[in-house]
Simulated assay, not measured.
Amino acid sequence: MRRREGTSGREATASAGRTDPDDAGSASVVSVSVVVVIAVLAAAALAGTQALAERSRVAGAADASALAAADAAAGLVTGGGGPCSLAASLARANAVELSSCDVDELVVTVVVTGSAPVLGVAVRASATAGPPPSAPRRTGPGP
């Protein structure tokens, strides 16, 4: 190693590892920046997964409400004040709100709304239940 003019051997050796004396502590700033970016990405991923989980939960509540209402429309379930009333009570039991209920003979379509816990975004789902289109239309109780 060559010695700089006007410096002692110890100073030349100490400054040989650094390119610029103003870089002191820059690794700490970069490390903190990386940790902050990772924390922000983790928070975004958590919020996204909770929204997806809420969407699945609301869709399940819509399916259950539509199936119960279709059973009531077909006369398989008695009491409860009709298909839409039964759908509303099932929606409440699943912690969602029944937004609409449409009964067309034995086919029932419901729309329910919930909200994602972290984001507070409204999540809507709809479901239709009833006999398959190829099945003969019957009203009243089954056999």
Rank of each mutant, 00 (worst) to 15 (best):
A24C: 04
G25I: 00
G25Y: 08
S26C: 00
A27C: 08
A27D: 08
A27M: 11
V29G: 02
V30W: 00
S31W: 00
S31E: 00
V32A: 11
S33F: 08
S33M: 14
S33Y: 09
V34S: 12
V34N: 11
V34E: 01
V34W: 12
V35D: 04
V36W: 11
V36Y: 13
I38E: 07
A39P: 04
V40E: 00
V40D: 03
L41Y: 07
L41Q: 00
A42F: 07
A43F: 06
A45M: 12
L46M: 13
L46E: 10
T49Y: 10
A51Y: 02
A51W: 01
A51N: 09
A53L: 15
A53H: 11
E54D: 04
R55K: 15
R57I: 08
R57Y: 02
R57F: 11
R57T: 02
A59T: 12
A59S: 12
G60S: 14
A61L: 12
A62Q: 05
A62C: 02
A62H: 08
A64L: 15
A64Y: 03
L67S: 09
L67W: 04
L67H: 03
A72D: 00
A73D: 07
A73N: 06
G75K: 08
T78W: 06
T78N: 02
G79A: 06
G79Y: 06
G79P: 01
G80H: 12
G80P: 01
G80Q: 08
G81E: 10
G81P: 06
G82L: 02
P83N: 08
P83G: 08
C84T: 00
C84F: 01
C84N: 11
C84R: 03
C84M: 11
S85R: 15
S85K: 15
L86R: 14
A88R: 13
A88N: 13
A88L: 10
L90K: 05
A93K: 08
A93M: 10
N94W: 00
N94H: 11
L98T: 01
S100W: 13
S100M: 12
S100K: 12
C101D: 03
D102P: 01
V103M: 07
E105N: 09
E105Q: 12
